[in-house]
């Protein structure tokens, strides 16, 4: 998902067993944990990683779509895409603020992203080659994100849950505008429909990877699920996504690039091919097609923006001093 392979840390020896039990009981009772409440160090650290990775994904996720703002086919599409990309920036900010309540600063997290200590979702290491990719990204990538973010509204950590509620309110627009692009292209010329098919071909497996590795290889799930940091297993969400998306592809008259795809009456869901997990692990290590470019772009923005950040701060301090002097 937007947070994949988040390394979880369980309870530590120094955690007081009574407090741990009380903490778990609160979570089991559906209470929200707030920043100043007692929490195990492992809970705090895992959440910083997960929320931070989620925030970074929102921010880096602006890049593949930003790529098309100046080349959108109409003024209306351009305005819509701008609004969507602006939302992603907002989502990143909500999430950074949620993570900051755990005692890490946004600037620290940014630096950890830039020097590779923190990650972002594998999906954003793929290029957006044609306008149809804007459709596929909204439809599939935001669709997959919604699958994960809707249950996360019930996560145990109050600030994270509140950020997710805010994000979910806005996310449905993202998926619909993507599907709207796909509908338009599929109803267009054969060449336009072919572009839409090509976009689906390229984004299908990377979208399936967003949910993270198969449950049997997912070593971090059980503790995070007990703490309600993670609400569903990777495979559950992937299955749900496929079941929801295949009929939508059929509606568009597109073919999901999977020869093995078949409805399984018994389980009431589709059987489908797994993505190439070797590719996924490579992307996560920073060897995706656009990985180097993404981080270089973020680093340039961060470095080039330093004088603005410092300048505004200096101006604010000067104005404050002048005001004090005048009083």
């Amino acid at each position: 998902m937007y947070a994949q392979m988040v390394k979880s840390e369980g309870p530590k020896d120094q955690d007081d067993p009574t407090k741990l039990a009380e903490f778990q009981a609160r979570i089991d009772a559906g209470e929200k944990i707030e920043p100043k409440d007692w929490m195990p160090e492992g809970y705090r650290k895992t959440l910083i990683r997960q929320i931070g990775q989620h925030a970074h994904s929102e921010i880096v996720g602006q890049l593949p779509e930003g790529n098309w703002i100046t080349r959108a086919p109409t003024l209306e599409r351009k305005a819509i895409l701008l609004a969507k990309v602006q939302d992603e920036a907002g989502h990143g900010l909500y999430l950074y603020c949620a993570a900051e309540t755990l005692g890490v600063s946004r600037d620290e997290m940014t630096e950890m992203l830039l020097d590779g200590r923190m990650k972002y979702s594998s999906i954003f290491a793929y290029p957006t080659l044609t306008w149809a990719d804007m459709g596929a990204v909204g439809w599939l990538v935001d669709g997959a994100a919604i699958m994960n973010q809707v249950p996360l509204q019930r996560t145990s950590f109050g600030p994270y849950s509140r950020a997710m509620i805010r994000v979910c309110k806005e996310e449905s627009f993202h998926q619909r505008q993507g599907f709207d692009i796909m509908m338009k292209m599929c109803a267009g010329s054969p060449a336009q429909k072919q572009m839409a098919q090509d976009a689906l071909n390229r984004f299908w497996y990377p979208a399936l990877m967003m949910f993270g590795p198969s449950d049997k290889d997912s070593v971090h799930s059980s503790q995070s699920m007990a703490w309600k940091i993670k609400m569903n297993t990777n495979d559950e969400l992937r299955q749900k996504f496929v079941d929801q998306t295949v009929p939508q592809a059929e509606y568009l008259g597109l073919t999901v690039p999977d020869d093995t795809l078949a409805w399984n009456e018994e389980k009431g869901g589709y059987d489908f091919a797994e993505p190439d997990w070797d590719e996924f692990f490579e992307v996560l290590k920073g060897n995706g097609p656009c990985s180097v470019d993404r981080i270089a772009t973020r680093k340039k923005a961060w470095d080039d923006g330093a004088w603005v950040r410092d300048g505004l701060m200096a101006h604010a301090e000067k104005a404050r001093a002048a005001k004090v002097a005048a009083e």
Partner: peptide, 24 residues
Amino acid sequence: HVGSLHAPDAEMAILNARDVYTRR
């Protein structure tokens, strides 16, 4: 209360809040 944000001063905080929390 809707959330928090970073800004150098009050004026910028309000401008940023406009963009972050009242887009709709």
